[in-house]
Amino acid sequence: MSEVHEDKERYLVYRIKDELYASPLLDFKEVIEFIKPKIVPNMPNYFSGMVNLRGLIMGVIDLRKKLGYQENYELKPSMLICETDVGPLAAIIDKVEFVVYFSPTEIQDLKVEGKVDISCLQGFMQYQEHLISVIDIKKFVSNIEKSEKVEQEKAA
């Protein structure tokens, strides 16, 4: 809008446990209240199931599980809806914090082995007192592996 933000982009900052993550705001279609997903069989454990969002069936990725956080999740989490290459997906996070204007060039391109798959980690942004991991949300959520136990299941 104003000149101040000319070279900057908007990022949505969200929280999981005590850590902050950010992704380009325009990667999200909307933020909705948590809807309890229905189970989809034979999918990896972080694939929580599917929900019916105004007639559209979409898969739900529990970002907290995918990022390797343990139990004791927020009781009232939020869902971020993003349109990925493989179709619409909802990502469960604990809470949406705020939107920041940030220049992509100021994102520190530091790749560390961590919870986020390195190819999806774009770097870190230093904003006020926070250190925020910037992730390529579309790429991260749409990377769904095949559930490893599918094959053996029917032996039972």
Partner: peptide, 18 residues
């Protein structure tokens, strides 16, 4: 309803419905 392609990972499913 046609499901997004990631549902193909679940071999048992051919589509979705409300």
């Amino acid at each position: 309803r046609t499901l997004s392609s990631y549902f193909e990972k679940s071999f048992a499913v051919s589509g979705g419905t409300i």
